[in-house]
Nucleic acid binder design. Structure first.
Length: 780
DNA sequence: AATCCGTCTATTTTT
DNA sequence: TAGACGGATT
């Protein structure tokens, strides 16, 4: 126990040992957030406050969930089975599998990823003869997801005009098709389990009674529905421990609602607001830069990072004439760093948009420096892997229309558009799945389709009873996928990926403790279909606890399970309600897999500022710091957009441990055109005295020469560094003014009677220059 | 059934 | 600029 709390700073310690009350932890970048979260759980368990059974840990990414579990298992000696730690979607999946009947879903429901969802939308719209010019399927998809994230079913969508009317129609048809086919998209996982809890009192009370400690990571990234889901799960005896950083909220565009933080404070009457401001990552100058920059944002809860480490080096700023020159300079600096003994993996190149990577890649490649670009296609999203998964889905459930459509003629087996049209008409007429319609199709088309049906049948029977990796192996070969790609000129990588899928299955089975178990058995559980025709039906047909009686033991798993007519919820991994094959398919949808191989290699790391969140590097380059690019032009219309860009820049800056380079180019090739940009406004929002300009003269006659360069290139530099000494205040410091209230120092210059500071008071007062001679300022 | 060609588009991303 | 997509061609 003493070990557990060792080396925690006072704020961390306070957060970890907080009494059982709702709490909001404002965790700055590099402040030991994950440590606090995991130590909190370990402390709750070790002090006997909580059993693992009563803990629910929620994260956004599988990576974060895994890290939490790994760290916990080193902190807590006892078994952590029974603890629920996972992503929102993973946990919802688990709830819905356990209570599929109450949720109106078949136990074997399949999860649609973004691509799959778009394919279903297109299929729906085709069947409705929609004008895809006027109503782009992609837009319809966004519309559906937005609606779901606001908790709205098709009937609840507000219809203003023809467009929203059509969109709502497509949404309704889409939901109906998903219900018929037993598929669930990502947003649906959330919405459906929210409805399950909202409408089914026994189930809700069961989980509310069980989970006494809810701990949420990256709270600033939650969307409205996720917050409502948490509220529903957090019963009267439960406490919520939310950790987040409003300054690192960079996902507004995908529905994240920072407002959830203040809503949480209000809704739960949070008395414990803890700020973790001590930073263990970066040198002082980097933190000062970050603090100063973010102080220009008005909508903040307020926070100021500090460190016990020294100031370190200044920020190095480079102005290039072109993107190519910028890349060439970067390569030189990288080479110098490597010569100095830095590992390439400890150098990161960050940029605002993916298109910017090309020039840098080209330059690094020509210089023979190995690099790794984050982003792009993930393992389970690859075409060949998707095909293989579709065959597996058909093995699990031949009535999976989407899977059938994907591979019925891949590899090609003479089933063309005519045959498929007949099949779809037949299925529509008989109101059955495509699979069930195959025997009803006559003629030549029927013949080729029957051949496909025989293939799937024999696949199913041969694979039945085999362990999962062998099933995958069998599917790859019997389907003809491997042969197909082997015959293709550029197919080597694809064959490799297919073989990798066998490994992935083996690893999965190993991790879940299912090695050797049959992947599935034939006719295990009859697929119960469509008890509910639409999602609305869930509300209508559940939620009546009449048959339960009042005496339901709230904490007793068995009772509730029987009463609610569901499989009793248990403690085991997500596989508890499914056979290994179904679990693996869910896993493939919920965890898209690693981005790329070569993670271990010593390569320069290239990524967008977004994907850098949560990471740290000794040396960081932030490139393309130009107006229109970063901040991005599409964000400049509203304040909210600009503030989010600034937060993104804040995230980027705080990735650096010791050295930070900032660069921009006067001209850049974008969309096949040369664009001429000016330096990003963010340069004006950073303290001048912290920046060392590597390019003294180019187009910045307005700027002051900096005190960091040995030979002053401008005649009479303002002496920022000296004034910093004579100045009783420093940039980044919190101060308070009699009239304007609390603020933060954003800039400082002059000395003696000339000394003045620029303060951001936020709110109505905003930014102000104040002369120290007159203004009465107090620290803090 | 594969290939070619013109057209369109272009911020950020996890599940 | 370059990749993706859809339609038309061979």
């Amino acid at each position: 126990m003493a070990d557990l709390l060792n080396d925690l700073n006072p704020e961390q310690l306070a957060a970890v040992t907080l009494p059982a009350q709702h709490a909001l932890v404002l965790a700055g970048a590099g402040s030991g957030k994950t440590r606090v979260l995991t130590t909190r759980i370990a402390w709750l368990i070790q002090t006997g406050n909580a059993s693992p059974h009563s803990v629910l840990g929620v994260t956004f990414t599988n990576k974060a969930a895994r890290e939490m579990m790994t760290r916990l298992s080193t902190l807590v000696p006892m078994s952590l089975r029974g603890m629920w730690v996972g992503t929102f979607h993973g946990l919802c999946n688990r709830l819905l599998r356990a209570h599929h009947r109450d949720a109106g879903l078949p136990q074997t429901f399949t999860i649609l990823d973004t691509q799959d969802q778009l394919a279903v939308v297109k299929r729906v719209m085709k069947s409705m003869h929609a004008d895809e010019e006027r109503f782009p399927p992609r837009q319809v998809q966004y519309f559906i997801n937005d609606a779901k994230e606001e908790g709205r079913r098709p009937s609840q969508v507000e219809v203003h005009d023809e467009f929203t009317r059509r969109y709502a129609e497509y949404y309704a048809a889409y939901d109906e098709l998903c219900q018929k086919e037993g598929t669930v998209d990502f947003a649906e996982l959330l919405l459906r389990s929210h409805e399950l809890l909202a409408n089914n009192q026994p189930i809700r009370e069961h989980y509310q009674g069980r989970f006494r400690y809810l701990l949420i990571d990256e709270f600033q990234d939650t969307n409205r529905l996720q917050y409502r889901w948490l509220k529903l799960l957090c019963g009267p005896q439960a406490v919520m421990f939310a950790v987040g950083d409003d300054d690192q909220s960079i996902y507004r565009f995908r529905g994240a609602n920072v407002g959830n933080m203040t809503d949480f404070e209000r809704d739960f009457q949070v008395k414990n607001l803890i700020r973790l401001e001590q930073n263990y990552r970066s040198h002082g100058n980097i933190l000062k830069a970050a603090n100063t920059l973010i102080a220009s944002n008005r909508n903040r809860l307020g926070k100021n990072l500090w460190t016990e480490a020294g100031d370190g080096e200044p920020l190095r700023v480079f102005e290039a004439r072109s993107d190519i020159e910028e890349a060439a300079w970067l390569v030189e600096e990288v080479q110098a760093l490597v010569r100095e003994g830095h590992a390439r993996r400890d150098i990161a190149v960050l940029y605002r948009s993916n298109a910017q990577s090309r020039v840098v890649e080209h330059a690094l490649f020509s210089a023979g420096i190995s690099y790794r670009v984050y982003g792009g296609l993930r393992f389970f999203e690859r075409l060949e892997v998707k095909h293989a998964l579709a065959y597996l889905r058909l093995a699990a459930n031949p009535a999976d229309d989407a899977a059938l459509l994907r591979v019925v003629n891949f590899p090609t087996r003479g089933i063309g558009a005519r045959a498929m049209e007949m099949l779809q008409d037949t299925a529509a007429a008989a109101r059955c799945s495509l699979w069930d319609a195959i025997p009803k199709v006559a003629g030549k088309a029927g013949g080729s389709l029957a051949g496909f049906a025989r293939l799937i049948e024999s696949l199913r029977s041969e694979a039945a009873g085999l362990p999962l990796p062998e099933v995958v192996e069998l599917v790859l070969h019997k389907s003809g996928l491997v042969a197909h790609y082997k015959a293709e000129r550029e197919g080597a990588d694809r064959v490799e990926n297919l073989e990798e899928l066998v490994n992935a299955a083996a690893a999965f089975v190993q991790e879940e403790g299912l090695a050797g178990a049959p992947a599935y058995v034939l006719d295990a559980e009859p697929l119960e279909s469509n008890e509910f025709q639409s999602a609305a039906g869930v509300a209508a047909s559940t939620g009546s606890p009449d048959d339960v009686g009042d005496g339901v033991g709230r904490n007793e798993v068995g009772n509730i399970g029987v009463a609610a007519g569901a499989t009793p919820p248990g403690d085991d991994p997500a596989t508890e309600f499914q056979d290994p094959l179904a679990a693996f398919l869910a896993h493939a949808s919920l965890e898209s897999g690693e981005n790329q191989a070569g993670e271990g290699s010593d390569a320069v790391q290239m990524m967008t500022a977004h994907s850098a969140k949560g990471l740290e590097f000794h040396n960081v380059f932030i490139t393309g710091l130009e107006e229109g690019l970063f901040p991005h032009e599409n964000s400049l219309n509203e304040d909210e957009g600009l503030e989010e860009e600034r937060r993104l820049m804040y995230v980027a800056i705080t990735r650096a441990r010791t050295r930070l380079y900032l660069s921009f180019a006067q001209s850049r090739m974008l969309h096949g055109q040369t664009r001429y940009n000016v330096a990003s406004r963010f340069f004006d929002e950073l303290p001048r005295n912290l920046m060392k300009w590597l390019t003294p003269t180019l187009a910045r006659s307005q700027r002051d020469a900096d005190p960091w360069s040995g030979s002053a290139s401008a005649p009479a530099p303002r002496q920022a560094s000296q004034s910093a000494q004579a100045m009783p205040f420093r940039v980044g410091q919190n101060v308070s003014h009699a009239k304007f209230g609390a603020g933060i120092i954003v800039d400082a210059e002059g000395s003696g009677s000339d000394a003045r500071v620029r303060i951001n008071f936020g709110g109505a007062h905003g930014l102000k220059w104040l002369a120290l001679e007159y203004a009465k300022l107090t620290a803090g």
